[in-house]
Each structure stands twice: as C-alpha cells, then as structure tokens.
C-alpha cells in the first residue's frame, strides 16, 4: 500500500454560499462531499516529478557534475593542459584520475572536457528549442501550403544523419572561419531544431482547434499574440521534454564528432577527444585514460535521460510508462 501523503488528506474548504446551499439541500445534515485543496499546475507537475525516484536522483547527480565541471577548475590546483612530470601515472592522491602520455592531469582534463561538452550541449539545446518552437508553432498555426513547405524543409534536415553534415560543414568551414566551440554549437543547433519543430507543430495543430483560440480571436487578438501568449504556453510540457532530450543527443553527437577529430579541436578538449586519446589505453595498460572520460559521458547522458523521463511523466502521466 502506498504511503498516505499528508497533503492529499481531505480538506474541507467550504465557501459561505456553497456550504449554505449544501446545508439546506441536505436537510440540515453536515456536508458529505469532500473537497481537495486546489493546486496550481506548476505545483502539480513539480510534485509528480518528485515522486520519480530515479529522476530526482539523476537531477542531483547531474547538478553535482555541473558543479564539478564549472566550479571544480576554480578549486583544483592544476590546470588542464599543463604538462607535469608525471607521465602515465595511475590514479593517486595528486592525480585522482591519473595522467596521460603528456603528463596532463586527467582530473583537470575531465573537468574541462565536461565543461566544454556541457556548454555545447546546453547552448545547442536552448537555441534549437527556441528556433524549433517558433518554427513549429508558426507552421502548425497557419497550416496550408506554408505548413507543407516548412515541414518539408524540416523533414529534409531530419533525414540526413547529423554526424555526416556536421563533419562536412565543420571540417571545411571551421578551418577557415573559426575552430571555437561555439561554431560547432551553431552547426549542431542548425541540425537539431527540426526535432523540436515537429513536436511543437503536432501540439499546435491540435491546440489551435480548441475554443480558447477562437475566443481569443473573437476578442480581437492578433495571430502572433495568440500563438505566443496562448498556444505555446500550453505546449510547455513537450517543449521542456524535447529540451532535455536534445541535451542528451547533443552530448552523444558532439562527443562522437570530437572523437573522430571533427568536433572540438586541440588545444581545446572535450570528453570525446579524451576518449579518443585513450582508445588504446586499456590494452596499453593505462585503463584510467579511457574509463574516466567515458564514465562521465555515460553519466551525463544517463542522468539527462532519467530526468527527461521524469519530466515527461510529470507533465503527462500515462499508465503505460514504467517508473524507472
């Protein structure tokens, strides 16, 4: 039996008029129906999310990782590209993650790599979600040939494997323009926005038929206002879920690109680059060079996936989902 949550206990909140009505109608008997405390939607979603153990744990772990990546370098005594004299040293007190063939402290490297990967992932997901939301909302709202054309373009982008395009574009252009990480983020955003656009469009298509849209229009609201003040806020659940999933996807794609040498380039480092450097490490006898960066990639993606799952359930609980 699930534990009784105190806040769900029946609370009598009669208003004066209603209670009088009920009182008389029931022949002077005390009120029989129980009312429950009203909650805002935000509270409801928040509470549902908290019930999801794995999601909450993942959120905590993820926040710890973020702290590690961004606050860690400020506290750690070594910087990430510093060639120390300890070559290929296993994990120890001074080098908790060991060192590589250049003497770089892996702990510092992983901190920096995680930070870079997270920066790219977060900026890509926010940018692509914003673009995708606007695009999908406009497309779904106006329908007709505008929608058809817009969706064809989006579908086109979707069907091409992201890695391929990223490699082509980044390799060729970045050499001449810039190899800074935000350029990579820009390319990835351009590849990921159609995912969000599709989902938002689907929601908008159904929402635009609802009465509140008609009511708003009857009151004289302009299209842009209707879209962005009425319809989009109702899609917030899906949008947030897509956002989290895009973070996960971006981490996977960016690390893969960096692994192949097409993403984050030296001297900058990302988790993918670190794994690439350590790919023969296991056989060579320095397994820490592989396992630590790999572990962090898995950790980030896993926690994001659980958080996304918890959010999806919090916004739209369905019977068919397994509580992870």
């Amino acid at each position: 039996m699930p534990e009784k949550n105190n806040d769900d206990a029946p609370v009598l909140l009669p208003t004066l008029g209603a209670s009088l009505d009920q009182f008389v109608r029931s022949g002077g008997m005390p009120q029989r129906e129980f009312t429950v405390k009203a909650r805002t939607q935000r509270e409801i979603v928040f509470r549902r999310f908290l019930k999801h153990r794995a999601a909450v744990t993942s959120l905590i772990v993820f926040l710890l990782v973020v702290l590690f990546a961004f606050v860690g370098p400020l506290l750690w005594n070594q910087s990430f590209n510093f060639m120390s004299n300890d070559i290929e040293v296993p994990p120890s007190g001074t080098h908790p993650f060991g060192t590589d063939s250049n003497g770089y402290d892996l702990f510092a490297d992983v901190m920096h790599g995680t930070a870079r990967t997270l920066e790219i992932a977060l900026s890509v997901s926010i940018a692509s979600t914003v673009i995708g939301t606007v695009y999908g909302a406009v497309s779904g709202y106006f329908r007709g040939w505008v929608d058809t054309v817009m969706m064809r373009i989006a579908d086109l982008i979707l069907t091409i494997p992201a890695i391929v395009v990223a490699i082509i574009v980044s390799d060729k252009l970045s050499a001449s323009i810039s190899s800074a990480w935000y350029f990579l983020a820009f390319i990835l955003s351009a590849l990921f926005w159609p995912v969000c656009a599709r989902i938002v469009r689907a929601q908008v298509l159904s929402l635009r038929e609802k009465e509140f849209v008609e009511a708003a229009r009857a009151l004289g609201a302009k299209d842009t206002r209707i879209i962005f003040r009425h319809i989009v806020p109702n899609c917030l659940g899906s949008i947030i879920v897509v956002l989290t999933l895009t973070v996960a996807n971006t981490v996977l794609v960016e690390t893969a690109l960096s692994f192949l040498g097409f993403g984050v380039r030296p001297p900058d480092t990302s988790l993918g680059t670190l794994v690439s450097n350590g790919q023969t490490a296991i056989q060579d006898g320095f397994p820490w060079l592989f396992y630590f960066p790999a572990l962090f990639i898995i950790l980030i993606v896993l926690t994001i996936n659980f958080i996304g799952d918890g959010l999806r359930d919090a916004f739209d609980p369905q019977q068919t989902r397994v509580r992870a």
């Binding site: 996977l252 692994f259 790999a294 898995i298 993606v301 896993l302 996936n305 659980f306 397994v322």
Partner: peptide, 26 residues
C-alpha cells in the same frame, strides 16, 4: 508490465541509450 523483468529491461534500455557507440565499440 511493472514486473521485475519490465524494470530490468527498462534499466538496461536506458543504459544502452546512454552509451555512446564509440565507447561501447572500444
């Protein structure tokens, strides 16, 4: 649904989803 098999399979599925191909390949 909701059996131990279900939970185990879901957990493994999540793990596989979070495992980058190159890590697994190596």
């Amino acid at each position: 649904q909701y059996s131990r098999l279900d939970y185990a399979a879901t957990a493994i599925g999540f793990l596989f989803l979070s495992l980058p191909t190159f890590v697994f390949a190596i």
